[in-house]
Design a binder for these strands. Structure first.
Lengths: 220, 220
DNA sequence: GAGATTATGGCAGCCGCTGACAATTGACAA
DNA sequence: TTGTCAATTGTCAGCGGCTGCCATAATCTC
């Protein structure tokens, strides 16, 4: 029996598969360029399809809707974020693992993104997402789903039943909420780069414990 | 000069204003009944308009889109939540104020909702929102906007510059994240009531500090 | 009650999105 | 190489969300 590309993911991809991947990347790049140039809502799916030289129907075979192409690189980020937590040594405590996972994920994320589009385009797109209500909403929902997966992993690490102990959920929810707040602040500065985002997030995470103290005056 | 309804909000509403309010409430009630009966996506704006006995065009004069009518009661909740924080005495610390504001808001919220639709309908709708991707996304975005307002109020209470000190944002983000996690868990139990939701939220909030401890074993 | 204001309905039309069918292209084996 | 099968694509028709436009009808003001 010859190599079965359908079942063996390690097999070298055939022409068909490579072509599909190329079409998909082209669609993403064209879409992000149009979105960042003239805005998300002002960009038509027909325009994206035309720019990528496929029919509108084909676009919808690659992406379920216009949102999905806009957030396709965020989906990549999410996978790497989860993988980063899975890679933390078991010796690390929950909070430390979440924190170290977050900081360690940015390198791989940057490289993976760069394979598809220029990183600067992706950064500009982040701001479009943050300032487009529909996109921001969809992004927050995805982050919610990611939270669930992170919490499940945390519960597994600590040997807890996620249905009973709320601490994994609580910790993840708190950290993700804080990081989102950092991202919101970051997106308001047009010139901030990826490193600035990472630094802002860690600074915000460091404020978590102090912020929970019920008297903010004692600390200073 | 007679009473000027356009500029004096305290003036008794005329026939026109009362009729508008009635139409709006009817639209909300019809929409929620249809959404809970046959699902959000399966319900057409034409059907809602027909049930409320207005034209589709009129529906869109009351609500910017189908999402808005689905989340109109959540918008009410948000206003009361903010008002509850504003009403906390200045002596309370930030965390205490957030916590007490949250618990104190539920009474007024329940009463305000009951003026428009039966509370059970609203509770059923909460679960539809939680299980409908598009609605959940929109709700999370609104909560994000609420977070900003809450953080701004917290900064004002403590006399801080919200642009400089991240603690208001961090505290609000953490608490809101935790409460959202509670709401997600709650919505999975078909028979849980409003009181159960409140109790679950406070239980989750109480877990915030323990969850941040980096060793979960010491505590038990 | 006349005239100004405002709410409503009907219509045409754009855009996001989907199902169905036919045509094309790549994969695999005889 | 060629024939067959499966996957990919384009075209077309159509639905639902949503908007601008204009005419009509209901309220409000004097």
């Amino acid at each position: 029996m010859a190599i079965d590309n359908a079942t063996d993911p390690a097999a070298p991809p055939g022409l068909r598969e490579r072509k599909k991947q190329r079409t998909r990347n082209t669609l993403i790049r064209c879409a992000l360029e149009l979105f960042t140039a003239k805005g998300y809502e002002a960009t038509t799916v027909d325009e994206i399809a035309a720019a990528a030289d496929v029919s509108q129907r084909t676009f919808f075979r690659y992406f379920a809707n216009k949102e999905e192409v806009a957030l396709s690189l965020q989906a990549v980020e999410e996978e790497y974020a989860l993988a980063a937590l899975l890679a933390r040594p078991a010796a690390e405590g929950p909070l430390t693992a979440v924190r170290n996972g977050a900081t360690a994920s940015w390198g791989p994320i940057r490289r993976a993104i760069a394979e598809v589009v220029p990183v600067t385009l992706h950064l500009r797109m982040q701001r479009v997402i943050e300032s487009t209500p529909q996109l921001l909403a969809a992004r927050l929902r995805r982050l919610g789903a990611l939270e669930e997966r992170l919490a499940a992993e945390l519960a597994r690490r600590e040997g807890l039943d996620p249905a009973l102990d709320p601490r994994p959920r609580v910790l993840v929810a708190a950290c993700c909420g804080v990081m989102r707040a950092a991202a919101r602040v970051w997106s308001e500065d047009e010139n901030a780069g990826l490193d600035d985002l990472v630094e802002l997030m860690t600074r915000h995470l460091d404020q978590l414990a102090p912020a929970l103290a019920d008297d903010w005056r004692t600390g200073r």
